[in-house]
Deep mutational scan, measured.
Amino acid sequence: TTFEIRVGDLRITLHNADEEEIRWAEEALRRGIHADEILRTLEERRR
């Protein structure tokens, strides 16, 4: 599944994310964390 998060002009697309990952990514985007860093962190958490 694919889920797109939008916060203002910012956007990130997550693939195969669970609800916790989606909530975490949305909050991180709101705090101004760059999408590349969010994706990198999620990848590390999945390992």
Rank of each mutant, 00 (worst) to 15 (best):
I33E: 08
R45E: 06
L14Y: 01
L42R: 02
A28V: 05
I33R: 07
D18M: 11
R11Y: 14
L42N: 01
N16Q: 05
R30H: 08
L42G: 01
E44K: 07
E20W: 14
R6F: 15
I22Q: 04
E4M: 00
R30S: 08
E26F: 09
E43R: 05
I33D: 09
D9R: 02
I38E: 00
R31W: 06
E27Q: 08
D36Y: 09
R46F: 07
R31A: 14
T2D: 15
E43W: 04
R47T: 13
T2H: 15
D18I: 12
E37W: 06
A35M: 02
L29F: 04
H15N: 06
E26W: 07
T41K: 11
L10V: 14
L10R: 10
A35N: 11
G8P: 00
R23Y: 07
I22Y: 06
R45V: 09
A28M: 12
W24Y: 13
D36W: 08
A25W: 05
R30M: 10
A17W: 02
E27S: 10
I38Y: 01
E44I: 08
F3P: 15
I12M: 07
G8S: 01
R6H: 14
W24F: 13
V7Y: 12
A35E: 08
D36P: 08
E43V: 07
L29W: 03
L14W: 02
I33N: 05
A17E: 02
H34M: 12
E27K: 08
D18W: 06
T41I: 11
L29G: 03
T1C: 15
E20P: 07
L39V: 05
L42P: 00
E44N: 07
D9E: 10
R45K: 13
T13G: 02
A17T: 08
L10P: 00
E43L: 06
T1N: 15
R46P: 04
R30E: 06
E37D: 13
D36M: 11
A35C: 03
R30W: 07
R46G: 06
E20R: 08
D36L: 13
R31G: 13
E44T: 08
E20A: 09
E20D: 12
A17V: 14
I38G: 00
R45H: 09
R30Q: 07
E44F: 04
E21A: 08
A35I: 05
I5R: 00
T41V: 12
D18H: 10
V7L: 07
A17M: 04
R46E: 05
A17D: 02
W24H: 03
A28L: 09
I33M: 12
E4W: 01
L39E: 05
E44G: 08
G8D: 03
E4Y: 01
I12F: 04
T2V: 14
I5E: 15
N16Y: 05
E37A: 10
E27P: 00
